[in-house]
Nucleic acid binder design. Structure first.
Length: 476
DNA sequence: TGAAATGTTGGGGCG
DNA sequence: ACGCCCCAACATTTC
């Protein structure tokens, strides 16, 4: 009798450790791990995260080959692709990890229709700490406010400990596969990805190392350091979590262990765990409201008179707004595929409130340029900033880009890294170059309107404009 | 996980 | 010594 074959359909769970679907499939017999490039996905990965996907897949190809089951790459609608692959390999089962986005869920539903007496379909959970439908309010509904949601998570049964990866699995030889290079996930022609390589390598090994470095060295100072874009105070785990190179359960367990071993890390660890719960909250919201990436959660915002201004949008995208902290953030994003979280909030507030441009424009740009792009996080966070989301920042909470710059980048070190034309300005004064005297501008080699733009919009004016737009839409 | 406007308090200068 | 004003510094409210 031949050994049963199981298809392991990989999506945003591109790892070997803590992978219940992989373990189940491997225990059943031989496995065919497959990653499908899906042209029907309405939220196909953008440029930067395609680049990241390339790095991650090439690592995964090597790791899976090492343990004995080569990764198969295919292109097409997964429903059809998996049926063809099952016929080719004689597979009698399909295993995969659960997704929470509308497209992923719709696909899963179709897959379940393949189940029958001769074909098993198994869906596993490993991409969240808490399954969305298990975290309920007292009245049995989903949460709309973060704090009680987080409380309910802490009160829920603890996330299970991460599972070990397999040492050896049995694969199936000679299954045809696309070539990763042919997918052209890396930029062709002009190589814009040079800065993206400044990332730690996007391998499962690098993910582990990054996690250990964070919990051992950075977590104790996380509470304060995480808000300083000029310091390396964040976990830098987002690209790994976005693709499932790390599971949140690995991160959760590592943080708890470090907190246990090092009392000095407890306070920082608490804050970090709560950040992980913001990710859970975003998935919770997306699961309950599949339209989250497209439509404002609060209906009143549909009537808001957003402006149309291609020039302004482009200036924001390119980091040419004339507000140094905003420009530094947007350039960091463009150059490296990543932006510090504090600065994400600042640039987002600027787009939505100072420029009064639709949050969906910002969401789309981040989706295309972030190497760590995550549908749930991206949609929930943009709605949060715009004020139309769940537990959102009230619309009148408008960041002042100068004050934010002075508060979180007091010496201007972060701005100087990404906006070198302002290098000559000493100290925090560089956050508002238009306030400098003609002499000090000349001295620092800055010519406003020439080698650095004048402010795209006056903040005080823009603030009033946003507030009155908000009042108007609230009326209707 | 704001900022600006407005209100209150208290110390010090000064007639 | 006393009242008055000024204005930081802080608190509260409003957007």
């Amino acid at each position: 009798m031949s050994i049963p074959v199981t298809l392991l359909w990989l999506r945003n769970d591109l790892r070997l450790i803590d992978h219940p679907a992989l373990l189940w499939a491997a225990a059943r017999g031989r496995i065919v791990p497959v990653y499908i490039r899906d042209p029907t996905d309405p939220w196909k990965r953008g440029g930067a995260s395609q680049w990241a996907l390339h790095q991650i897949l090439s690592d995964l190809i090597a790791r899976l080959a090492q343990v004995g089951a080569p990764l198969v790459l295919r292109t097409g609608d997964p429903f059809g692709v998996l049926q063809v692959l099952a016929a080719e390999t004689g597979a009698t089962a399909l295993a995969f990890s659960r997704a929470y986005d509308p497209h992923g869920r719709a696909q899963e539903k179709k897959m379940e229709s393949l189940a029958g007496p001769n074909f098993a379909v198994r869906c596993f959970s490993s991409s969240l700490l808490f399954e969305p439908e298990t975290i309920r309010t007292k009245s049995g509904g989903p949460f709309r406010v973060y704090t009680p949601f987080a409380k309910a998570c802490f009160a829920a049964p603890s996330p299970v400990l991460p599972l070990a990866g397999p040492r050896k699995v049995q694969g199936v030889e000679a299954v045809s596969s696309d070539k990763l290079a042919d997918w052209a996930l890396e930029p062709q022609g002009p190589d814009w990805a040079a800065g993206l390589r400044s990332f730690s390598r996007l391998t499962e090994e690098a993910a582990r190392a990054t996690l250990l470095r964070f919990v051992d060295e950075r977590m104790a100072a996380y509470r304060d350091a995480r808000d300083s874009p000029d310091r390396a105070g964040t976990s830098e785990l987002s690209p790994f979590l976005a693709f499932g190179v790390l599971s949140p359960r690995q991160v959760w367990a590592a943080a708890l262990l470090a907190m246990e071993q090092n009392p000095a890390a407890r306070a920082g660890g608490e804050v970090f765990l709560k950040e992980l719960l913001w990710r859970e909250f975003a998935y919770h919201l997306l699961f309950e409201t599949p339209s989250l990436p497209e439509k404002p959660l609060q209906k009143a915002f549909a009537a808001l008179p957003w402006r149309k201004d291609k020039e302004a949008l482009r200036a924001w995208q390119r980091g040419q707004t004339g507000y140094p902290i905003v420009d530094a953030g947007m350039r960091q994003l463009w150059q490296t595929g990543w932006m510090h979280n504090r600065v994400r909030m600042i640039v987002a507030s600027f787009l939505v409130k100072d420029l009064l441009l639709p949050w969906q424009e910002g969401e789309a740009w981040f989706w295309d340029t972030l190497a760590d792009a995550d549908l749930a996080n991206n949609a929930a966070s943009w709605q949060w900033v715009a004020g139309c989301g769940a537990d959102a920042a009230p619309f009148f909470r408008i960041f002042n880009p100068v004050l934010q710059g002075k508060k979180f980048d007091p010496d201007g070190a972060y701005v100087r890294t990404y906006v070198p034309e302002l290098k000559g300005i000493k100290g925090g004064a560089l956050h508002a170059p238009w306030l400098l005297s003609a002499e000090s501008l000349a001295e620092s080699g800055v010519i406003l309107g020439k080698n650095y733009p004048k402010p795209l919009v006056d903040h005080a004016f823009a603030r009033d404009r946003a507030l009155s737009a908000f009042r108007e839409s609230k009326k209707s």
